[in-house]
Amino acid sequence: MMSQGRTLTFNIFRYDPQQSGDKPKMVKYQIEETPGMSVFIALNQLREQQDSSLQFDFVCRAGICGSCAMVINGFPTLACRTLTSKYPKGEITLMPLPGFELIGDLSVNTGKFMRELAERLKLWLHPNLDDVDVHRLEAPMAPEEAAKLYELERCVECGVCVSACATKQMRETFVGAVGMMKLARFELDSRDQRGVEDFYHVIGNQDGVFGCMTLLGCQDNCPKDLPHMQQIAYLRRKMAVALV
């Protein structure tokens, strides 16, 4: 079993942008570690017992929904599935995900970002047929294609790739990995009517694949281990030969 009876020290970023006069600061909290404790459990205990104003976001707390991404000891990741036993020194520093609108403390507005991105890049299926007859047998799809699509669709929009990307941090207008991965998913989908030119118009530029410097913070931190490197390289090759 996991170590028991340790006292953990949490250094937590605190700032309420809506509170006039409040300044960003790091605040230290101490908590008794219990077996199997995750950052999710610890933060809730802190809120319930020590500081009821502490803001953070959890929804599924099972690594599925992507709500709870934050920077833990320098690594952006999902807090719900980060066990405190991972840190032998018992010191855990929590920072909000950089690059997103800060709601307060550890809570950032990833939802707003993702929705705007989806609207900008038109991240939905543009089916070949506007309407299908839902009473009739469905059109077949190659089983391998379906499996490949699912592999790319596992993104949970947690925002880790955006915050782990130095390119995105330096160049605000850069699409970032999440946008490119989603376009790669639709590019692959035989049901989508958009051709390479359509995608080229969206990401065949300095804000898209040609702005990416292949730092791979996206791939290395992605909690779903998505193949950013291969997919972005694939898009880049495709765009590099398109219309040039």
Binding site: P127, V132, V134, R136, E138, E145, Y150, D189
Partner: peptide, 19 residues
Amino acid sequence: APKAVRELTNWGVPWTRVT
């Protein structure tokens, strides 16, 4: 139920297919 499944196909769900 079958209608909903088929509709969702056209909205992008990559249902696992029969081989």
